[in-house]
Design a protein around this nucleic acid. Structure first.
Length: 607
RNA sequence: CCGGGCAUGGCGCAGCUUGGCAGCGCGCGUGGUUUGGGACCACGAGGCCGCAGGUUCAAAUCCUGUUGCCCGGACCA
């Protein structure tokens, strides 16, 4: 390692060459010189960057794009990631997790065992090795972990246990975006727990839930909200996602103003109240060329919530349609439809033979081959306008119960801003965007069963352990912290994850007084275990401060001929909340105290 | 995967319509003057104009194909 002062033949100090001056017992080199720091910082915004974290991380020399959704991390980012991982490790160890490491590449045979080699789409990168064997790059590690432990716990006495690792995932996303927000290759902490009863899993799930709250709080994101979520390809029933609420998020969240209800839009219950209306006779209305809800509403002068619309889906292009009927002002939630049908479906349009495009309605479809689904918003609805399944005509006076007595109603609609909250019943639903930082699933026995993991229970019976799994995206978390905490000039890293704790700016390092004061300060800080980035370059104050802003180190110590003349060091916080002159010989102790104080606020590793 | 856009030195861009020495700003190097918020002067280095074909005396520019990247959407543990 680079820790020892290795001298080259020419007498070059190896550590100084790499910009390292000393090393903490943890193994992380703690002091770095700006003149040696690898990476460029930019004044101008790179053309492809759209969101703050992407812009600032590229401009600050943290990350470099290698390909679509693939990034290299430069030293400042690597240091942040290391600190985030350290927090995660502490919290995982704290809930009795044992760290392991599974491989990224593995034989496809393992994924064939679980069935996912075929069930997962092209996000799973498949390839062949030189012998022609099918291989995959892990996009998640259930298979690898079950393979690791399936022979290791043959008795109930070994349960419960949890293993976790921090490892690269590759997911061949069709569309990467937003810098580190949605990538193809990334680091994930994923944990897997094994239990002999559902109750035990639930107890552990709760512990992990709490650990996640601590992790996000400690990383500087106390507002992360846990929402109920769809379990998707993972299988299992209960799942939560930990969402960082932000406009740049890709997920849609349903939150409540009045209570603590929170859910991913995909699974949020949509509650509607049928409008008060009398039954009216069903009558045909001529609506020539009027096909969209918008047109129907203005042509017949009705509100969208007084209409019934049909949305067509198909399993694949050649299949019979699935027709979802719902109130005209609502949107279909495709995830709900998929979960109900337990089949994949895709939006499509009505075709010759199965329905009349633009005039689909629930009345008179007897004998139609389409699978008909009725949303709950139509339950008890009366007097609606609906398609008449006849070119150029709609029905007025459609009443679901009377006209479609056999209809079974289920929840297929997306909820909306101001809708009734399933938690408290107020009209208090709020729609927000969020970034999924982590998720936790109660998996059940899907993988232990498919992959033959068994144990002998107390009663002598052979059983499959019940699993839970728990993930956190590391780089995405870093980007989210940046989104949460930055100004126009750069990130403002919380002390707990900051790449360095103190940034010493030696303005005019050619000045002997400045140089010796800076060296003494850096030396004293290092000795007390503080991580220091020292700007030893001969650059103008503007350049030095701009770079410091981009590096976002929480405490800045400025030494210049002016401060030296006064015998002082200027100590500032990056967030501008603090600025004070401190006597030069007391500066190290003062800064050390400040670092400690700021660490305590967020709860960094080892505190 | 659908739709749109872009590709010219490390970064940001102009040049392309109408073919004729490859340019500007930032950054980088050297020397000097500066020195508390991206300083100034001088000199300098750096580019097969994404790639492959084609048209032409001549292609960054026109034509064909192809690849990559970005944005919106679909999709997604």
């Amino acid at each position: 390692m680079l820790g020892a002062a290795v001298k080259f033949d020419g007498g070059l100090d190896f550590r100084a060459f790499w910009g390292y001056n000393s090393k903490k017992p943890s193994g992380r080199e703690c002091s770095v010189k700006m003149s040696r720091l690898v990476g460029m910082r930019f004044k101008e915004t790179p053309a492809e960057c759209q969101i703050a974290s992407h812009i600032l991380l590229v401009r600050g020399g943290y990350i470099k794009n290698v390909g679509s959704g693939i990034f290299s991390l430069l030293p400042p980012a690597k240091r942040i990631v290391d600190k985030i991982e350290a927090i995660i490790r502490e919290e995982m160890d704290n809930i009795d997790g044992q760290e392991v490491l599974c491989p990224v590449s593995m034989p496809a045979a393992l994924w064939k065992e679980s069935g996912r080699f075929d069930s997962v789409g092209s996000e799973l990168l498949r390839f062949k090795d030189r012998s022609g064997s099918d291989m995959v790059l892990a996009m998640t590690h259930e298979e690898a972990v079950v393979h690791m432990v399936r022979d290791a716990a043959p008795s109930y006495a070994s349960y419960p246990f949890m293993v976790y690792h921090i490892q690269t995932k590759f997911r061949d996303e069709p569309r990467a975006r937003g810098g580190l927000i949605r990538v193809r290759e990334f680091t994930m902490k994923d944990a897997y727990s094994f239990h002999t009863s559902q109750e035990d899993l639930e107890r552990y799930y709760e512990r992990c839930y709490k650990a996640y709250e601590r992790i996000f709080t400690r990383a500087g994101l106390p507002e992360v909200v846990a929402v109920k979520s769809d379990s998707g390809m993972m299988g299992g029933k209960v799942a939560h996602e930990f969402m960082f609420v932000t406009d740049v998020g890709e997920d849609t969240l349903v939150l409540c103003d009045q209570c603590d209800y929170s859910s991913n839009m995909e699974v949020a219950e949509c509650i509607t109240v049928p409008a008060e209306a009398e039954d009216a006779p069903l009558e045909l209305a001529e609506t020539p060329g009027i096909k969209t809800i918008e047109d129907v509403c203005s042509f017949l002068s009705v509100a969208p919530e007084r209409t019934c619309k049909a949305v067509i889906y198909r399993k694949n292009a050649t299949d019979e349609p699935v027709m979802v009927f719902l109130r005209g002002d609502l949107e279909v939630c495709e995830t709900k439809v998929r979960n109900f049908l337990k089949e994949d479906i895709h939006p499509d349009t009505a075709r010759e033979g199965d329905a009349v495009y633009g005039y689909c309605g629930p009345v008179g479809l007897a004998g139609n081959k389409a699978r008909l689904l009725f949303d709950r918003s139509l339950q008890g609805a009366r007097g609606l306008v609906a398609g008449a399944n006849k070119e150029g005509f709609h029905y007025k006076g459609f009443s679901t119960e009377r006209d479609c007595p056999d209809a079974e109603h289920h929840d297929f609609a997306k909820t909306y801003e101001g809708a009734v909250c399933p938690g408290c019943g107020h009209n208090s639903v709020r729609i927000r965007r969020g970034i999924e930082l982590g998720n936790i699933f109660q998996l059940g026995t899907k993988y232990s069963q498919a992959m033959g993991m068994r144990y002998i229970d107390k009663d002598g019976a052979e059983k499959h352990p019940i699993m839970g799994c728990y993930g956190i995206g590391v780089e995405r978390l870093m980007a989210s912290v940046c989104e949460e905490s930055h100004d126009d000039n750069g990130p403002i890293w919380p002390m707990s994850v900051a790449p360095w704790q103190v940034h010493v700016c030696a303005l005019r390092s050619d000045d002997e007084g400045v140089k010796s004061t800076a060296e003494a300060l850096v030396d004293a800080l290092e000795k007390s275990g503080v991580e220091v980035l020292v700007d030893d370059r001969s650059v103008s104050a503007g350049v030095m401060f701009s770079d410091a802003d981009l590096l976002g180190v929480p405490i800045r110590a400025i030494i210049s001929p002016k401060t030296v003349a006064r015998g002082m060091v200027e100590v500032k916080k990056r967030d501008k909340s603090f600025s004070q002159d401190v006597a030069a010989d007391e500066a190290a102790a003062f800064i050390r105290g400040l670092v400690k104080e700021m660490l305590d606020e967020t709860g960094a590793v080892g505190v």
